[in-house]
């Protein structure tokens, strides 16, 4: 099973989405901390130089400046690598953006193992957990260009501080032209009855491939893209848990605190269900290319399939 790559890099889709919005709405502004080339927002700067604020290597100030812009009526998108966009300025996000309920949008690029050759220092495996624990925050991870393009206006106008997790390069195409994105509403990509795989980000493609492998074992797996980890679409989570009685989560993140935890919390309180979590098992990242890192950190198609087989076996 192969997936066609998107024509455009995700960072280009992000920047184009912001430019399109900014053309219609002068409240849209961009804040950066010396990573405009990396984040693809140079094109925004070219189109709207006066609405671009590159504060230099100072993420805490970037978030604070974004909060001030929002307090004075702007809708700022403040971007950096996931590690620096979140944990580096956690208190600034918590107090200046979330406690204040200001609509600051934080774009984090190259999540988890996507950091590749930038290595362990740049590899955020805790960013979703951190953002999810903050009241008022919305937490979204884009999976492909079609979804991201539709998500940007919904995020801009959702009035909440929002964390957007985006890979920089070309994603594998998941959604077709008929796709209708809704922030907060999970997408069922494949129906199934034996086990459901809830996946985010780069793990969605792997989950779909795992479902094919599982079919050969006679296991009918459902695959759901939970692009919005907060607020969680508990209705879909509970519906598929009830239908399949076995749940797997798959995320390019620590298994602590993000999608796996969110699903486990929901199930434990409402419908205890057999569950396995695929994700990074409480360790730091390291340097390497994606095909090495996914094996080293156990984020492969086979890791998902094995977890699904285990969950199905545990039902008996």
């Amino acid at each position: 099973m192969t997936f066609e790559k998107d024509a455009k890099e995700m960072r280009a889709v992000y920047a184009e989405g912001l430019i399109a919005l900014a053309e219609k709405d002068d409240r849209i502004v961009v804040c950066e901390a010396d990573l405009m080339n990396a984040n693809g927002t140079k094109s925004f700067q070219k189109a709207f130089p006066e609405r671009t604020f590159d504060v230099g290597v100072a993420e805490a100030n970037m978030i604070g400046v974004a909060a001030g812009l929002a307090a004075a009526g702007k809708i700022p998108f403040a971007n950096s690598f996931t590690a620096f966009a979140t944990r580096r300025c956690l208190d600034q996000i918590t107090i200046s953006c979330a406690y204040t309920k200001l609509p600051v949008k934080i774009g984090g690029t190259d999540p988890g193992i996507c950091a590749q050759l930038n290595g362990g220092t740049h590899m955020s495996l805790e960013d979703v957990a951190l953002m999810r624990a903050i009241p008022n925050m919305v937490v979204f991870e884009a999976v492909d260009a079609t979804q991201l393009a539709q998500a940007i206006p919904q995020i801009a106008y959702n009035d909440s501080p929002t964390y957007i997790r985006i890979m920089r390069t070309q994603a594998e195409k998941i959604y077709g032209p008929d796709y209708k994105f809704q922030l907060g509403k999970a997408d069922v990509l494949k129906d199934g009855s034996d086990v459901v795989i809830f996946a985010t980000g780069i793990m969605v493609v792997r989950a779909l491939k795992a479902a094919v492998a599982l079919q050969e074992d006679g296991i009918d797996a459902a695959v759901v893209n939970v692009h919005t980890v907060k607020p969680l679409d508990t209705e879909t989570v509970l519906k598929y848990a009830a239908k399949c009685n076995a749940v797997v989560t798959a995320e390019n993140h620590s298994i602590i605190g993000a999608l796996g935890s969110a699903v486990a919390e929901t199930l434990s309180e409402n419908r205890p269900t057999i569950m396995r979590r695929v994700g990074v098992k409480d360790r730091f990242g390291e340097v390497g290319m994606l095909n090495y890192l996914e094996k080293a950190l156990h984020l492969t198609v086979e890791d998902i399939a094995a977890a699904a087989r285990e969950a199905v076996a545990a039902k008996k």
């Binding site: 604070g64 400046v65 909060a67 001030g68 004075a72 107090i95």
Partner: peptide
């Protein structure tokens, strides 16, 4: 005009406000 308590954050926000006011 701005929440403050975690020190220095208000100062960054003031800079952001000044940028927004100038833009407008």
């Amino acid at each position: 005009d701005m929440t403050a308590g975690s020190l220095a954050q208000g100062f960054s926000a003031a800079v952001g406000m000044a940028l927004a006011c100038r833009l407008d």
